[in-house]
């Protein structure tokens, strides 16, 4: 049975001041809980007993276990959206050799996005791509990225790099990039230079839009390809890459005379040749 807060608090202060032997209260720290009488000796003993109880031994153990549970749940989520998979198919230029540009008409569609990839990240990409000089580690590309929002957003992007290291990456939004649709993408050499221009045709009658320009790449030609890449084991990259063309020294665009797999480290998706100038990325296991 406990008195009201006010009565008990008043009584506690009186007891305290009586001990101090002073009519003027001085500050003294003492445990006094609201609504409870000041701890008496018997209560203090019981409190000590409580702190020595098995309950309080179990308490830090429970806290540590809870922390371990929380921490140990992380690694799977981290790995799921950080592994990149890519499918690259190359165009044949016949006996011509290296091309001055690549042109791919690529399907924009809504893909499944791995739940471990946060909204606002862009875990799926499709591109028109060239390996500069025919070197595996040098490239330029243009295409789109898709984000993991509930209503997906698409942005155009272009990039290039040397020795597998990105030198520039740039993005821009276009209203035409929505699912379902088709757009054309071109990384193209600027004649007489080692510079490259990247272009987008929304197929809306407005013609080609210049995306980004890259200078002094050290290469004027490359092997044309199409690419689908993703992060997240449950993200998708199925898409049509059609009307594949490459540019020659006279600035003429030529349809690819064949398509073939170049590299594929994706366990769930692979390319499938449909015509000499089209491949689709489909659900299929296997590598090149």
């Amino acid at each position: 049975m406990h008195d009201s807060l006010g009565e008990e608090t008043t009584r506690s202060f009186r007891q305290l001041f009586a001990r101090l032997g002073s009519s003027r209260p001085t500050l003294k720290l003492k445990l006094m809980l609201p609504g409870r009488p000041a701890l008496r000796a018997r209560g203090e003993r019981r409190l000590r007993d409580t702190f020595g109880s098995r309950l309080l031994i179990a308490l830090p153990v429970a806290c540590a276990a809870a922390a371990v549970v929380g921490l140990s749940a992380a690694p799977a989520a981290e790995a799921a959206c950080s592994t990149e998979y890519g499918v690259f198919w190359k165009m044949s230029t016949g006996t011509y050799g290296l091309a001055y540009g690549a042109r791919n008409e690529i399907e924009v569609k809504q893909h499944s996005i791995d739940s471990s990839c946060a909204s606002g990240s862009y875990p799926v990409a499709e591109t028109s791509h060239l390996r500069l000089g025919g070197n595996d580690g040098d490239w330029v590309e243009a295409g789109y990225e898709e984000d993991g929002s509930a209503t997906p957003r698409y942005v155009a992007f272009a990039e290039w790099g040397l020795n597998y290291t990105t030198k520039s990456f740039n993005t821009r939004s276009y209203a035409c990039l929505s699912a379902p649709s088709y757009e054309r993408w071109e990384p193209v050499n600027a004649a007489g230079t080692y510079n490259w221009n990247t272009w987008l045709d929304c197929e809306d009658g407005a013609g080609w839009r210049l995306l980004f320009q890259y200078s002094s790449t050290g290469f004027a030609r490359g092997i044309p390809m199409g690419e689908g890449s993703r992060y997240g084991d449950n993200s998708g990259i199925t898409a049509v890459h059609q009307n594949l063309q490459w540019q020659d020294a006279t600035n003429t665009w030529n349809y690819a005379s064949g398509v073939s797999c170049y590299s594929d480290n994706d366990p769930t998706y692979s390319g499938s040749g449909v015509t000499a100038s089209r491949f689709d990325i489909v659900t299929a296991s296997g590598s090149c």
Binding site: A74, A77, E78, A80, C81, S82, E84, G86, F88, S116, C117, A118, G120, S121, Y122, P123, A125, R131, D136, G137, W139, E145, D147, V155, F157, E159, G161, Y164, T165, T166, F169, T171, S229, Y231, S263, N265
Partner: peptide, 15 residues
Amino acid sequence: APQPVEGEFPGPPVN
């Protein structure tokens, strides 16, 4: 978790 953000497709895989 580590996230691929706009701009972080790192190019071809090293080989």
